[in-house]
Design a protein around this nucleic acid. Structure first.
Lengths: 259, 259
DNA sequence: CGCCACTTTGAATTAGCTCAAATTCCGTGG
DNA sequence: CCACGGAATTTGAGCTAATTCAAAGTGGCG
């Protein structure tokens, strides 16, 4: 699928020995500490920035495309989806968000939000006036690093998503989606052996750039291979007996698509 | 292609009357003022932040995946590509950058860059130590807004890219790619009736999530339809007689893909 | 209990991919 | 200046992964 002719200097030697201890750092920090880190960050924000707490329920909209930007939002609990809309009527789920994530960042640049943010469950959102945040940040520069890290993460994540869509076949994309969802839960100290998909097949497909039928078939195949299992009664609950197997599945397909 | 069943509350009424003056704002600011705005921003940075100027030539690498993050980079001139790499060897062009753009933002979060940034032409890059920037920002908060705007833009742009890949057929994606390239040049006050593609078909295809053959065919079709024309001798120079026609082409396909 | 939304599965279709061959361009060296 | 060779591009011809269309199955909820 991919041509490796991207650039003369783009060879795999770069993935070899000299460079990235990044992975090592990530592994050292286990999920417990990830979860603690999120808690600490939330504490810091709570302590240093004036904020308004808002409870939301499934289906509630945090902000809508076209709305004037004024606030950033930090998610304290719940599950959220980001839905982008464009002028010609296309729409797409471009992100899924959890506790500790920031949303509304897309509105800073031109003063208007470019997407909808919708709750998929009950939860609590912290509303932070952007101006108030900037003032607070001058007094407590640590806040800046927190915000910048959040934006940086978002950028890195969006690029990974683009890469998945462009370089992985459908089955691997679905596997990767599940793997990433589980990873997100794990980092927040939540249960990961059994997960609840809070989206319909159509939404998942929209998010991953495929049709609902393809999602359904991919899930069926994953189940047939024993990589996942559906919990009795109801196809929104998925059991993941072996996370390694799931990761391996995605990996194997990724490798296959290289030649 | 897309199922509209993304969510109960996701209907097109939102695209109607009440909300977005965003478009109006964008139109009022014409390209001249865009160009001036970029110049002003660069002046502001130059005045308030300690920076190092670096000249680069085609093929030069600004930073590489795996490298320790320490600096942000502001592009003063030239053309650049962002190439993401991941552990299993897949690689993809995930961004194209011009004068006024910031790069290196992806490294803030975990302290390591996740991509390569490569010059596609001679140009000048301003290297800014992140720590130095934060210090300067406390004294001149306008700097913060500039950085945040850049990051916000990046996020919005990446999501649009994801949306293009997921919702547009190949021909429309290529047309959209050209349109966006031209728009970027226009905002910087550069020539737009004739543009030089600084990438091979393979690179364009990689960026757009399709093969080089598909890019070639799409360009041929665009040329056959008179939406673009190849300048004599050399298929890297493209003439765009009518930008509206190009935009219309992409638009038409987008609309078609909705039903 | 029955409706409705969601899901699954099958069969046919197709957009885009792969493979292959011909062509053009460009730099390099004679 | 021209000839040559390698890289990039174009175009054609099958092939395949994913889509579309269709029908049946399932579960949740009033």
């Amino acid at each position: 699928m991919l041509q490796d002719a991207v650039s003369p200097q783009s060879n795999s030697y770069r993935l070899g020995s000299p460079a990235p201890p990044a992975g090592a750092v990530r592994q050292r920090a286990d999920n417990v500490s990830f979860s603690q880190q999120i808690a600490q960050t939330l504490d810091l924000i709570d302590a240093a920035v004036p904020l308004h707490r808002r409870m939301v329920r499934a289906g509630d909209c945090i902000y809508q495309a076209g709305e004037r930007f004024g606030s950033l939002y930090v998610l304290n609990s719940g599950f959220f989806k980001i839905v982008n809309l464009n002028a010609d009527g296309r729409e797409q789920v471009t992100g899924l968000k959890f506790r500790g994530d920031w949303i509304g960042l897309d509105g800073i640049a031109d003063g208007y939000h470019a997407c909808d943010a919708i709750a998929m469950d009950t939860g609590e959102v912290w509303v932070i006036r952007y101006d108030a945040f900037l003032e607070a940040a001058v007094r407590a520069p640590a806040l800046l690093r927190v915000l910048h890290a959040a934006m940086s993460c978002e950028i890195a994540h969006d690029r990974n998503a683009l890469m998945s869509v462009c370089t992985l076949p459908a089955d691997a994309r679905v596997a990767e989606f599940l793997r990433h969802w589980v990873e997100s839960l794990a980092k927040r100290g939540m249960r990961t052996d059994e997960i609840t998909l809070r989206m319909t097949r159509a939404e998942i497909g929209n998010y991953l750039g495929m049709t609902l039928e393809t999602v359904s078939r991919a899930l069926s195949r994953l189940a047939r291979d024993g990589v996942i299992a559906f919990v009795e009664k109801g196809r929104r609950e998925v059991r993941i007996p072996d996370l390694q197997a799931l990761a391996g599945f995605a990996q194997r397909y990724a490798a296959a698509s290289l030649h």
